[in-house]
Nucleic acid binder design. Structure first.
Lengths: 210, 210
DNA sequence: GCCATAATAGGAACACGTTCTACATCGTGC
DNA sequence: GCACGATGTAGAACGTGTTCCTATTATGGC
């Protein structure tokens, strides 16, 4: 692996979000870029998402790519956010099976994890990006964090009328942390999929013994 | 930030460890390299640890640096392991204050976290490296993980004669995960030191209410 | 339609992790 | 002492993220 960085600009430069884009042509360019990123990541992981390759595949100039996404990290995290939103909209309309909160949370996590592990390269790319993100990507990352927390608290209380308590949110955040760590360990080849699942299950058990 | 990678070699190539080094001159070179890494990281963070700069400061040729540590990541993770061992040997001989396991664990974590937050750039460098490590760095990372788990279970049971249970170890691992996530969020400027501490404390409270 | 301005294309240039090449030096067996 | 292989030095070269520059093309106001 080869890796290099330069002085963090630490600007608040964000990716051009969908709302900022006036014309249909621009929205289309943005979509083409994210699609290209997705395909390259799925096929070859983090290393295969090369800015020149993304630009080529999206039929966009390199400079344009950088105008839409100020760095490779922004690009990948944005792609992650889009996928996460998709997954979440699918999840939202399902009734989650399980009798206890712990069972339902485990179900949701396994479901999501399995989805990720079905595309190992993609997951590797997105997790790496997530891990390398700095403050300038905070907005995008916050999006993902909120989606995850919402998903977990919803699993704890399937009844839409029950507002999650502070404690619920805290538990969801801890589970999210464990999940992220487990994902990193898995992505970097330091633990197997089975170990990841077992570790998650243990953590949920420790946190949600009612 | 600029960042680049190449196809992961996925070799089991490890850093030359101290034992492998015959001559005193070699042990000295290794030490000079780790010292240089430490200083550069402390002063300028991940980006400042540039292989050419490390080689210069350690008065070693670039090729030699790569002979001792096959990548920037190995270099930084090895430096982290060395610092962690130092911290651990200091900790080992202290009696940890606190009446409950939770109090003692929180004490240890805050102590360690404060140490890290006193050197933000260093912490940023080491955390980034940790996050970017792949399977070829598994050995070095495992060292750090074991040290952390040992530190935490020891805080739970200060009595040396009490063997930690499986449950203790599981809890320690979850706390380690939360800690890592919090550290990443802090390092990347997505949360403040205070938030990091509060989040840790909440997590410990959830896991260790006796 | 026509101009001003922004957006895009195309591609050169630069930085830094990593690799490679040519040569020097050290240490060991003889 | 000497030859030789391992180790080290010096620095060029390469790949990829990022920046920059110039020419061309859309776009919106008149």
């Amino acid at each position: 692996m080869k890796l290099q960085t330069m002085g963090v600009p630490m600007s608040t430069t964000n990716s051009l979000s969908v709302e900022d884009l006036g014309s249909a042509a621009q929205r289309d360019r943005r979509k083409r870029i994210l699609d290209a990123t997705y395909v390259l990541a799925r096929e070859g992981g983090f290393d295969a998402v090369q800015m020149r390759a993304v630009a080529d595949k999206a039929e966009v100039a390199l400079g344009t790519l950088y105008r839409y996404f100020p760095s490779k990290i922004h690009l990948l995290v944005s792609a992650l956010a889009r996928e996460f939103e998709r997954n979440e909209t699918v999840m939202r309309d399902l009734t989650i099976p399980g009798d206890t909160a712990a069972d339902r949370v485990i179900y949701v996590m396994k479901h999501t994890t399995r989805g990720l592990q079905g595309d190992p390269k993609l997951t590797e790319a997105l997790t790496r990006a997530f891990m390398f993100a700095d403050a300038s990507v905070a907005a995008e990352i916050h999006t993902v964090g909120m989606l995850l927390t919402a998903m977990l608290t919803r699993a704890m209380h399937p009844d839409v009328n029950v507002e999650p308590t502070d404690r619920d949110v805290a538990i969801a955040r801890v589970i999210g942390d464990v999940w992220l760590s487990a994902l990193v360990a898995w992505v970097t080849g330091r633990s197997t999929a089975a170990e990841t699942g077992a570790h998650l299950e243990t953590a949920v058990g420790l946190l949600l013994r009612d």
